[in-house]
Amino acid sequence: MSTTEEHANEVPAEIADKKETTPETKKESAIGYVILFFFVGLIASLIVGWIIFPRLLYSQKSQPFDFNHAVHLDLVDEGCQSCHYFREDGSFSGVPKLAQCIDCHEEVNGEDPNEEIFVTEYVWKEREVPWLIYSKQPDCVFFSHVAHVSEDSLYDGKDCVTCHGYHGESETLRPYQYNRITNISRDIWGHNIAGFARNSWDRAKMDDCAKCHAEARDAASRRNLKAPTTRFITNIIDVAFPGTRPAGKGSSVQTERGACFECHK
C-alpha cells in the first residue's frame, strides 16, 4: 500500500486511479511494521527521556577537599550552631569562613591529608575555601534561617535535620551535583527526575516550602479546635479546599498564602 500511496501523491490522479491493485497480505504486514515502529519509537524516547536525559542534564563537581562533619560535631559543644551560627543582626553565617577554622587549624594537627590540603593551600595562603554549597538557593530567593529555627517565629523551632537531613553526621562530602542549564544545585531542584521527594531534603523547591508552610498553618489553626468531629470536618475541608478557611489565610491577596515577597527578593 505504501507504494501505491507514494504514487498517488506523485502522479496525476487520473493515472493513479487505475492502479489500485495491491495484495491484501502486503497491506497487513505493513500495518504490523507500523505498529512495531510505533513501539520502537515509544520505548526509545522513554529511555532517552527517563534515563539518558537526566545524566546529560546534571553534572557534578567534587569539593575542594573532603570534610568530616561527624568528627567536628564530636568536638564542639553547641551542635551545628557552633560553626553555623547566627550573627548579631539575625543573619545566618552559613559555611564557616577561614577565620573561624584558623583557631584550630593554624597548623596541621593530624594525619588526615584533607587537613593538610586545607592548611597548606588555604590557611597559609589566606584563601577562602570555595566550598560548593549543596543547599544554595538561587539569587532570587530570600531565606530566613532564624525565622525557621527560633521558637518565637511563625513556624516554630525546627532543627537542622528537618530540612538538611543528616548532613551533620556525614563523614565525607558527596559530590556536588548541579543542573547544567540552570547551574542550580540538584539538592534544590530534586534528585528524582520525576520530582518525587521522599525526604524534605531531597528537594527544596518553592512548592516544597509552600507545602510545609500550609501544613504548619493548618496544624496551628486546628490546635484551637476541640471537638473531634469539627476537627475531622475541618481536616477534610483543608485537604480539599486549602486556604479557604479564614484561619488558614495567608497574607497574600492573590494566593491566600504567604505573600511572594516573603521568600523572593
Partner: peptide, 8 residues
C-alpha cells in the same frame, strides 16, 4: 499549582 485556590 501554587497559585490555585478553591474559590469561586
Amino acid at each position: 499549582n501554587f497559585e490555585w485556590i478553591w474559590d469561586m
